[in-house]
Amino acid sequence: MLVEAQTSDMLLPIPVAAARPQAALAPREESPAVRLALTAVALAFLGLFIVLPLVVVFSEALQKGAAFYFSAFAEPAATAAIRLTLLTAAIAVPVNLVFGVTAAWAITKFEFRGKSFLITLIDLPFSVSPVISGLVFVLLFGLQGWLGPWLAENDIKIVFAVPGIVLATIFVTFPFVARELIPLMQEQGTAEEEAAIVLGASGWQTFWRVTLPNIKWGLLYGVLLCNARAMGEFGAVSVVSGHIRGLTNTMPLHIEILYNEYNFAAAFAVASLLALLALVTLVAKSLLELRLDRRKP
């Protein structure tokens, strides 16, 4: 470290700026005016299209005062929606976590044919409209669907009930964890796992003691994003839910109902809760990114 500092000092004996004629720019710089203009455009665009909507959520939510704000959550339909949203995420996220790790293990630790095709298939839910994601389950399990009559006979409800909401959420959040892990594990290679096995570790020991500690931050990152989407999913859940108040309404669906009833302040109050979740997710994500950056050699 010390030696490095010394050499770099020696390499830069003269401050570069002092040696540069005033009009000349370094080869990778734009003129100050262009820089300022581009920065202004970027910030204005982000402010207008992204920050303002977020600010509006909180301002509208608190429009009628704190008392009203908190009363919006006390309503039974609201608590039921919050409970269902938490339940859905509590099922969908762990399922996708296990799937993501399993898929990433198969894809990154082994060489086999058809690998990139498999990755494409895993990514497929990203390019399907949320509405269609819901529709496929209605077609499969709905009354007029392939399995509908059999389900009705056996008195099993999937569509317009909680299982449908969970299924649609799993579909929509399917790729999140796998997608985060695959590049990370590809970069890390298989040498450490091989070393563990040569040293006598079993497959499980290798996973728990060597692989998992190496991927834990990336995994957490994927889980965070997966969770944000699972709690906030609207289109797919809307199609399979049936909108039964207090039973099959998640938070986003509850927001829609309140909004359509012109109960704006309450709608924004519930929305602010989800917005808060989004902000927490982003802060955690930024912290994780800092951590991942620092660990890079």
Partner: peptide, 9 residues
């Protein structure tokens, strides 16, 4: 933010 903010919100 658009990634994390639910679409309905």
């Amino acid at each position: 933010i658009p990634f994390a903010l639910p679409t309905a919100v």
